[in-house]
């Protein structure tokens, strides 16, 4: 059971603000609550209670933000820019190592996992 908002299927019994924040890349809890306030969704509203016009209104609000693919593209572009101009941060990203001076003798697993030139494929 899911409610489709912005091309994402969100669980029907989650709060609207929580569902948006959890499912949509680039939307956190605060942004989600702001969207709800703007559209006029009450705080305890659940996903399955949304009407069609409300979903459309949420979609409209979301389309004004840089989220999902656009945001991912932007992040990738930023990393790529750093690499092409040859900055230290760009090099570290390319090497898959921590960018902000953390130690690498051990514990660099998060950087190893995430830091790539093509971070969001």
């Amino acid at each position: 059971m899911g409610v489709h908002v912005f091309g994402k299927s969100i669980k029907h019994n989650s709060l609207v603000s929580v569902g948006l924040a959890k499912k949509i890349f680039g939307v956190g809890f605060l942004t989600a609550e702001r969207i709800c306030a703007k559209v006029g969704i009450y705080p305890q509203m659940r996903m399955n209670q949304l009407t069609e016009p409300q979903i459309l209104a949420i979609n409209k609000e979301l389309s004004d933000l840089t989220i999902e693919g656009h945001l991912k593209q932007k992040i990738n572009d930023n990393i790529k820019l750093k690499r092409t101009i040859g900055t230290w941060a760009g090099q570290r990203h390319a090497a898959g190592l921590p960018v902000r001076g953390q130690r690498t003798r051990n514990n660099a697993s998060t950087a190893n996992r995430l830091n790539k030139l093509d971070r969001h494929t």
Partner: peptide, 8 residues
Amino acid sequence: TKYKHPDF
């Protein structure tokens, strides 16, 4: 209240 104006 927990409710918010459109300007949050």
